[in-house]
């Protein structure tokens, strides 16, 4: 177990480095922060000075080397627009994203399991058909469109909920629903199909023959066996969930990491983009690891692999 975690943790820096290298090169190929930061009629001298100050006059491999060296010291550079260390900027945006994504994840996991199990148990019922259809719709709907529609309906027409921003619990409802429509369907359908498989297994026939109650069968056997695919799926979705969060945060003006990254890319605030990528990549890799660890605890057979 420990060896397994250790091996995965060793892989972490390499995954993160690989991702930063790609982002580092790509973002430098597609724009120059100096052009965007200084007014268009700035002198060549002022431009040259800022270029030097940002270290952009160095060859790319040297720039990357400096970046890695500083990274090893925990220094991700100064943000051009925030006038603060880039890592501090990124860290200050994490709580908003964590709040939104965490809520969506927990609700998706719980609802996914409950609804998935119920659908599996009454397979073919009206309840089952309804939620399966809804899931397909949910997966097909672009989060961007759904977000705007929710705002128009609940905020503009009904005045029930705020349209955007972060503040009270009411501000969280619409963005959470938008993220849920993205997360819940796959979880629900996965739990449902694995539960259907498990329900047909021989050991459950034995369990029933032994006189175990339906509740006990569902909770102790079916749920436990359906837990693994659910956790794996949620873990794997972390990456794409971040993508969904970028859209959701932009639509709902939610001051989180996704929006920060988009804005930093648009203004070519290199150090913030890099810091955000390091944090996000670490986050995704760690959450995948966490999912695997949780799975191998629940099902020790997985540890062998």
């Amino acid at each position: 177990m420990n060896r397994f975690i250790g091996k995965r943790l060793l892989q972490l820096p390499f995954s993160v480095l690989g991702i930063t290298l790609i982002v580092f090169v790509l973002i430098r190929m597609t724009g120059d922060p100096v052009v965007l930061y200084l007014p268009p009629d700035a002198t060549q001298e002022a431009r040259a000075q800022l270029t030097r100050q940002l270290g952009l006059d160095q060859p790319l491999p040297v720039q990357y080397g400096v970046f890695i060296l500083n990274l090893l010291h925990g220094d991700l550079g100064q943000s051009l627009y925030y006038k603060k260390p880039a890592l501090d900027v990124v860290v200050s945006y994490i709580p908003a994203t964590l709040q939104l994504m965490g809520t969506a994840l927990i609700v998706a996991a719980l609802l996914g399991m409950v609804l998935g199990l119920t659908c599996a148990f009454w397979k073919g019922s009206l309840f089952d058909t309804f939620f399966v259809t809804l899931s397909v719709f949910g997966q097909a709907m672009p989060s961007f469109w759904l977000g705007i529609m929710l705002i128009l309906f609940f905020a503009v027409n009904l005045h029930w909920l705020p349209a955007s921003g972060r503040g009270t619990w009411a501000n969280m409802v619409l963005p959470t629903i938008t993220l849920l429509m993205y997360l819940l369907p796959s979880t629900l359908l996965l739990v449902r199909s694995s539960a259907i498989e498990i329900l047909a297994e021989d050991f459950l026939t034995v369990a029933r023959a032994k006189g175990l109650s339906q509740r006990a069968i569902l909770l102790r056997h079916v749920l436990k066996n359906a837990l693994n695919p659910t956790i794996s799926s949620l873990g794997l979705q972390m990456g794409s969930l971040m993508g969904g969060a970028i859209v959701t945060e932009t639509v709902f003006a939610w001051p989180g990491l996704g929006r920060l990254s988009v804005e930093a890319v648009l203004s070519r605030d290199f150090s913030v983009v890099q810091a955000a990528v390091v944090v996000l990549a670490t986050w995704v890799v760690l959450s995948n690891l966490l999912a695997d660890v949780a799975n191998s605890i629940i099902d020790p057979r997985l540890q062998a692999g």
């Binding site: 705002i151 955007s164 921003g165």
Partner: peptide, 12 residues
Amino acid sequence: RIIPEPATRVAS
């Protein structure tokens, strides 16, 4: 307030 998406800005 900073609301980057124009549709949301109008909705607000």
